[in-house]
Nucleic acid binder design. Structure first.
Lengths: 231, 231
DNA sequence: CAGTGGTCTAGACCACGGG
DNA sequence: CCGTGGTCTAGACCACTGG
């Protein structure tokens, strides 16, 4: 018999019933106690399995109302944001990094407002290029709120990218990502070694520590970049 | 006292220790039994809390080796793929839909290979436009493997988009997403009402049922589209 | 081998919220 | 009210793997 007890088995069995429409979309499924009895395991085991399916968006659970199969499952991709260096190396290429400019200046209004800073804080402006096998991969244009991470001012950004320094030293908490397609402006095109107005992917990111905004950054990817996700 | 027992509290306390570097990056943290004793709860409760943190990428757990704080936490965004209609309506706009063309034809080689189909299956080619407040929002170019979802041939795609029909009727299982920036070709630009060669975001998606490939689709978003994620 | 996390269990109590 | 999921507990056994 293929009867393995274990929450994974319960998970798989429930998934099978959902996919094969044995439990129809929108329908109520048996409660945990009944399922536990049917499948020969403890209720906690069923709970664990069904909780995973609910996390994945396939089930909707409510006290007293019971558990239903989601009518139109909202697919969720889990998308991990790697270090740029890892992103390059995971494609089998060699990653290098070049600092273009590093200045201390008040943060421009645009970035300030996005980060929710009220006064023009002292900040660090970093421009850098990440290369894959020596070819430009992504151009980084970053403003960092130095009040949130004063130690960054002492960091040697010619050897470690601000990207990595922040990941390693800043207690980040939440943030936003915005991918968009845009035409490369002349300066960016120059850095990336492509023609102006080439269609490129940009990523604008903000990150916040639990207590203060940390950084705004725009990454401009070289033409041909693809953002890949599996479901 | 703020002493709430509960896995959420354990989770928050552990998170605090990570963020405040009480548990340094890369360092070993106490084992579950000790933590349970310290925090006055059962080991299973600690396990639940630490498992969540490990799922979030903040901890790395290995039997016998114990639990470590991740050195460079890989941030993970959870990205939910809405129906196009929901995506439009969630921005407060009115969604409409227009079928441009619907034909039965053998699937082209390019799509066939991507989906892993060996013979040129009978397939449905759908071109459609999704509009937001009457303005083009995204152009959809889709090939569906009719062998996997024969019922689609009878569906009235002038009233319901293939997108929605498939979500509702096809038992999808896994798939891939590829976002890229590209220059609008003349035909696409015509559909979207923008100039040719405008930089636009495209999404190429494949979906598979547990048993067979279902569909390949390219969505071409109107200029200005942003893919937004929160962390 | 032995320490650690992974999981199961049976039972219990609680919180939510539908009817 | 009271059924249902959410969680906690104490104890147990197991699986993996470092030393």
């Amino acid at each position: 018999m293929g009867k393995q007890t274990g929450w994974q088995s319960v998970h798989d069995e429930a998934l099978r019933r959902i996919q094969q429409r044995i439990w129809a979309p929108g329908a109520l499924i048996p409660n945990e106690e009944d399922l536990a009895a049917e499948l020969g395991c403890a209720r906690a085991t069923v709970n664990r399995a069904l909780r995973e399916l609910a996390d994945a968006g396939l089930l909707e659970r409510r006290r007293k109302a019971g558990t239903r199969v989601t009518e139109t499952p909202e697919r969720r991709a889990r998308f991990s944001i790697p270090l740029i260096r890892d992103e390059i190396e995971s494609r089998g290429a060699t990653a290098t990094y070049a600092l273009i400019a590093r200045t201390i200046a008040p943060m421009p209004d645009a970035q300030r407002h996005i980060l929710g800073l009220t006064s023009p804080e002292k900040s660090l402006h970093v421009q850098a290029l990440h290369l894959s096998n020596g070819a430009p991969f992504v151009y980084e244009n970053r403003w960092v709120n130095l009040a949130a991470v004063p130690a960054l001012e002492q960091a040697d950004l010619t050897t470690i990218s601000a990207n990595e320094w922040l990941l390693r030293h800043a207690p980040l908490d939440r943030g936003t990502f915005d991918y968009a397609a845009s035409a490369a402006d002349p300066a960016t095109a120059g850095h990336l070694g492509c023609a102006p107005n080439t269609a490129i992917m940009t990523l604008e990111r903000t990150t916040h520590s639990p207590t203060a905004p940390i950084t705004w950054v725009r990454l401009s990817y070289a033409p041909g970049y693809r953002l890949h996700m599996d479901i």
